[in-house]
Amino acid sequence: MNVPTLAEMTAKGESPEIVFWVGCAGSFDDRAKRVTKAFVKILQAVGTKFAVLGPEETCTGDPARRAGNEFLFQMQAMSNITVLNGYQVKKIVTTCPHCFNTLKNEYPELGGTYEVIHHTTFINELIREGKIKMTGTSGFQGRKITYHDSCYLGRANNIYEAPREVLEALDADLVEMKRCKTNGLCCGAGGAQMFKEPEKGNKDINIERAEEAINTGASTIAVACPFCMTMMSDGVKNKEKEGQIVVRDLAELIVERQGL
């Protein structure tokens, strides 16, 4: 895949319309890497001039801050801001709601102010602007999809409609879980829980959520976050339902629909 880095682009004296912040999950986690590539395919298909930081990208510091290590968070934030400001970055898109929230809401106080947008909103805009055209038969008609709200998109940033509009544009049959939108149930990974075993309880949160998703009768769980992806996939596996229900990021569904 030919993905330009910001360093290369700058060396050529060019600048991108938008910087794609890939995130640690999108860079290292095998499942999330497929989402990263799906989103790159979309960017390339619509001809957006984008660049990634590549080896210059580092953790935003989100999990450190949520686990209480403010020093480490701010060290990460300051060094990222130095890099981003060095390249005079104006606009960032990211496939991770945690990176999105941190870059958008928490970097400005530390000197990093950018227009930050999550890929669900970005894709929705592409559809609205007609840059992604849903033509031909979709294969999505009658396919039941349930959307699992990421806490860091939904409650944290009030983004509930963009991902749903994307699903509707796919011509899929959107079925809601009882706990959705403002009442959406967390997948269990936020607040740095992704990086430790859960505390003692009688059930894992992702199992509770996967059961709810399975009970909708949907054949696809749509997610918009790499951590939700891991948690929901594990939950489905735990219930031995991998044969009936798949977990897909919205970007992957677009790629599938468009045959990219």
């Binding site: 895949m1 030919n2 993905v3 880095t5 890939v22 640690c24 999108g26 860079s27 290292f28 986690d29 890497k33 990263t36 590539k37 790159v40 990634v52 590549g54 080896p55 990208e57 580092t58 953790c59 510091g61 999990p63 450190a64 686990a67 290590n69 480490l72 990460q76 740095a192 992704m194 990086f195 430790k196």
Partner: peptide, 26 residues
């Protein structure tokens, strides 16, 4: 979590991957 902090400090990611692998996905 302390392990995760250490990973971020040394590898700049919450998991222990070499930073040089970050762009391998492409």
């Amino acid at each position: 979590w302390n392990g995760m902090f250490q990973n971020i400090e040394t590898s700049f990611a919450p998991w222990k991957f070499p930073p040089s692998d970050r762009f391998k996905w492409a």
